[in-house]
């Protein structure tokens, strides 16, 4: 139940600087840009103890506490075992203009609350695409969504299995989501005008839809590390791959 957040110490670092990269994943389906976010071992430097994150105190809610065998760590930067960085939005900044006029998919995206954690911690949707917000827990959660460009809302979800559907009409990156009852529960919602985006999981991998030939700027956004971007040229018949690297410090 605690696997997504991990329990151990933060990734060992040497000089107090986190350096994270998105590294090409190599072969992929024809015409797709693929990659994965990794921690470049040679580029991660920390001085002193690595940031282990703070312990999450779930004692105020017995349900949450009982869902976890060990104390969880609140880690704003989640790095997988293979060095991948999770919760990163990867998107094409200068996507083809025609892509913005394509209809939003009818398929629902999902933001779940499970074992008193958001799953996933970052979710991306097209403008107008339905987003289902579900409480899979048998305890009260509230879902306070605080956008800058879209209407905000705050849902009380006291019933296990309850779900609400919302959509956002204006593209916006990094909409904050939080539960005011369980302060460790935070997430991000990203709303994009086109389809050229992905959100990384714990392996840091991302896959973008097929791009027409051209020069593109690819940006990676993380809620605490900020953004990095790279330019890439896509030629007909090629599958570009790239690495995007974060550093903080």
């Amino acid at each position: 139940m605690a696997g997504r957040w991990g329990r151990g110490p933060f990734l060992p670092c040497a000089l107090g600087v986190v350096a994270v990269g998105i590294v090409a994943a190599g072969a992929a389906e024809s015409g797709a840009v693929t990659g994965r976010i990794v921690v470049a071992e040679g580029q991660v430097r920390f001085a002193g103890e690595p940031p282990a994150g703070a312990e999450i105190d779930m004692s105020a809610d017995a349900y949450c506490r009982d869902r976890h065998d060990e104390t969880l760590m609140d880690r704003p930067v989640r790095v997988g075992a293979d060095g991948g960085l999770a919760d990163v939005l990867v998107r094409i900044v200068n996507a083809p203009a025609a892509s913005a006029s394509s209809p939003a998919p009818e398929a629902e995206a999902l933001l779940d609350q499970e074992d008193c954690l958001y799953t996933p911690r970052a979710v991306a949707v097209r403008a107008g695409q339905p987003l289902v917000i579900r409480n899979s827990d048998a305890t009260l959660h509230n879902v306070r969504v605080v956008p800058d460009s879209n209407p905000g809302f705050n849902l009380g979800q006291p019933i296990q299995g309850i779900q609400s559907t919302r959509s956002f009409e204006t593209p916006e990156i990094g909409i904050q989501v939080r539960c005011d009852i369980h302060g460790w529960m935070t997430a991000s919602i990203h709303v994009l005008e086109h389809e050229f985006f992905d959100v990384t999981g714990e392996d840091g991998a991302f896959t973008l839809p097929t791009l027409p030939p051209g020069d593109y700027e690819i940006e990676a956004w993380h809620p605490t590390l900020g953004t990095v971007s790279e330019r890439v040229s896509v030629a007909a018949g090629e599958t570009p791959s790239l690495t995007l690297e974060f550093s903080s410090g």
Partner: peptide
């Protein structure tokens, strides 16, 4: 809460 000018920490329970 915002429907009557109060804090947005007060959630809406209309769907619950």
């Amino acid at each position: 809460g915002p429907v009557r000018g109060f804090s947005d920490v007060m959630p809406a329970f209309a769907e619950a």
